[in-house]
């Protein structure tokens, strides 16, 4: 059997909000080490990779590896009913046919039980090589979301360029052009809610990406005050948000190249 209890149920809510518009159905792969999920969007341009380590749950039991296939839109509708301080318990039988989600209020005065039918999803799992990226930008997640939103007014592609001085996001379209430059900056009073912008630069990078997908990724903004954007020329970028201190959600996006 599989059973896992997450004290901060709102993490699961935020994860579902982050992926439900990008991915329709996905397998939650459960093993004794935790839960992982890997899924491509319907056009196979981007990839989501979620990791929730077993030690981040206050109870975690997985007798044998199982894949729980779920429709993420249906799951997000159920998980939206999680109160912010609720704990969430996920349970599944050994073949993952039936999944139970239980929400408990902090004082134990309310318990709700939901069951979702598991889906048989045939998805290939891709091997993602561990890579040293040429440029790694860490910045406030809300700022990244805002930049994606603001540049979408101008065009559908953003050119992200890193240099020693900072990072620029530029877009152009029929209306004109827009460019937003961020310099490296310190965090305000080491306040985790006001992180600064930092750039680890091995080599400068300049690549084009579809704003539509980056905007989907920014639905994960409520998960964390900071986001990390890792890039190398000619390979997909990675946009990473931490999931509490138990894991991460990573979004990979292939660069756009000239026709």
């Amino acid at each position: 059997m599989f059973e896992a209890r997450l004290p901060q149920g709102d993490l699961l809510k935020k994860i579902l909000e982050a992926v439900k518009d990008l991915v329709t159905d996905a397998n939650f792969d459960c093993s004794s080490t935790g839960i992982s999920l890997q899924a491509m969007d319907s056009s196979h341009v981007s990839l989501v990779s979620l990791l929730m380590r077993a030690d981040g749950f206050d109870h975690f039991r997985c007798d044998r590896n199982i894949s729980i296939g779920l429709n993420l839109l249906a799951m997000s509708k159920v998980v939206r009913c999680v109160g912010n301080n609720d704990a969430v318990t996920m349970k599944a039988d050994d073949n993952g046919d039936l999944v139970t989600l239980m929400f408990e209020s902090q004082d134990g005065s309310k318990v709700s039980d939901w069951q979702l039918r598991g889906l048989d999803i045939d998805s290939e799992r891709l091997g993602i090589p561990s890579t040293d990226y040429s440029s790694v930008v860490t910045m406030p997640s809300a700022e990244f979301a805002r930049i994606c939103r603001d540049l979408s007014v101008i065009g559908d592609t953003v050119v992200i360029t890193t240099t020693k001085e900072g990072v620029t996001f530029a877009s152009k379209g029929e209306l004109g052009t827009g460019k937003i430059a961020l310099r490296q900056s310190a965090a305000i009073d080491d306040d985790a809610d006001s992180p600064g912008v930092s750039i680890e630069l091995q080599e400068p990078v300049s690549q084009s990406f579809a704003l539509r997908y980056l905007s989907f990724f920014t639905k994960a903004t409520p998960l964390a005050p900071t986001v990390t954007i890792s890039m190398s020329n000619g390979v997909p970028l990675v946009v990473e948000y931490p999931v509490g201190d138990m894991g991460h959600i990573r979004f990979y996006l292939a660069p756009k190249v000239e026709d």
Binding site: M40, H44, V45, S46, L47, E124, R125, L126, G127, I128, P129, A210, V235, P236, Y252, L253, A254, P255, K256, V257, E258, D259
Partner: peptide, 12 residues
């Protein structure tokens, strides 16, 4: 032009 993400990441 946009390459598929799978073309960058092979089978595990």
């Amino acid at each position: 032009m946009q390459r598929s993400i799978a073309s960058f990441f092979g089978a595990p």
